[in-house]
Design a protein around this nucleic acid. Structure first.
Lengths: 186, 186
DNA sequence: AAGTACGTACAGAAAAAACTGTACAGAGTA
DNA sequence: TACTCTGTACAGTTTTTTCTGTACGTACTT
């Protein structure tokens, strides 16, 4: 893992790698919950255990994959704020390391991904609500249609209520209030 | 939408469908956050606005897709507890409707999917921790390796701490305590 | 300014996933 | 028991996604 100096034997290296590998495997697999590829998950795991920030070439070598793939993988992880670009004088290459604060990672994920979804959904629901109201107010709307509209309206109202709640939950994640509600230490 | 009686005109039907369609579109798209396909998301949206529980054939007709796809789609949604099987005497076909309580849907999702991930990760981390400890205790472990092990150990410790917190957050979701912390009504 | 090294855009290949049609097991009906 | 109908397993096809190699723009070095 970038430690080619003979500071530890091949055997020692292998043993440590084996231990790491199993964790990487599991963590990588479960990262599909964050909507990332299995291989991007692996990349994350690799970076997690890296002894120091890695370059794209390092990653490519370790993962036995093309640098192009590393580039896109890293970008995905950067977007999710799971990985940070690191500056180090002397190296012209870009260096990356994982964000080790997983609390932060988790809350950031919500703040970005879920917020986006909530907002677009809320917008769609509100728009629909308006249209329904406009339709319902038209004098030539039959009684049956009125019933259908009432039903749709109620469904949308409930959904809106839920999204507003979710929005507040995301607020709590974003500003860290969640850690008052559910403390880091029990 | 299963309303082939002439209780409303073609035109009325179309107008309502257009409004619904836009919501379905958006909701379906954002359901990728739950790890479901776009088309499964659409299916969910369809069921959301359905005036009554639907059969697989109904869905296939509306979605213009094979019954097989509906079957797998519904099963996915059932697994996520986003859809419920409904019993209705007289009909030999299975009937499905969405779970309209979206608060429930959200918390259930966490309770099942995220819990699974947390548990498998915690297990892997603990196993790794044990192996590291065993290795570190061996007398022939060099100083350099000891340092590497110490670093890995610390990383794992932090990760464990995070997962334990997440586990408690999931607890709060599961038993509804989250609604005390972040109330449904502000 | 010329040369070198880095990251990524892009097009094509490989792999994975979604979707379909057929076939069939099992439950309900007569 | 024989018959009908429903949901799904499975194999094959289509579509989508992932991955790779090449080519190139940019930035740094000399």
């Amino acid at each position: 893992m970038g430690l080619d100096q003979n500071q530890w034997s091949e055997e020692e290296h292998d043993v440590v790698q084996r231990i790491r590998k199993r964790v990487i495997e599991v963590v990588g697999r479960n990262m599909e919950l964050y909507g990332v590829t299995l291989s991007t998950g692996h990349l994350y795991g690799l970076l997690f255990f890296a002894d120091k920030p890695m370059t794209l070439d390092d990653m490519g070598r370790e993962m036995q994959m093309s640098k192009t793939s590393m580039s896109t993988g890293v970008r995905t992880l950067l977007d999710l704020k799971m990985v940070n670009k690191v500056w180090e004088k002397g190296s012209r290459k870009d260096l990356y390391e994982v964000e080790y604060d997983w609390y932060q990672t988790f809350t950031d994920y919500f703040a970005t991904q879920w917020r986006r979804a909530v907002e677009s959904n809320l917008q769609a629901l509100r728009r629909a609500m308006k249209e329904i109201d406009r339709l319902a107010e038209q004098p030539d709307t039959g009684g049956f249609v009125a019933g259908v509209l009432r039903a749709d309206r109620e469904k949308i109202r409930q959904a809106e209520s839920y999204y507003k709640w979710l929005d507040r939950l995301i607020d709590a994640m974003e500003d860290g209030e969640i850690f008052d509600l559910v403390p880091r230490e029990p």
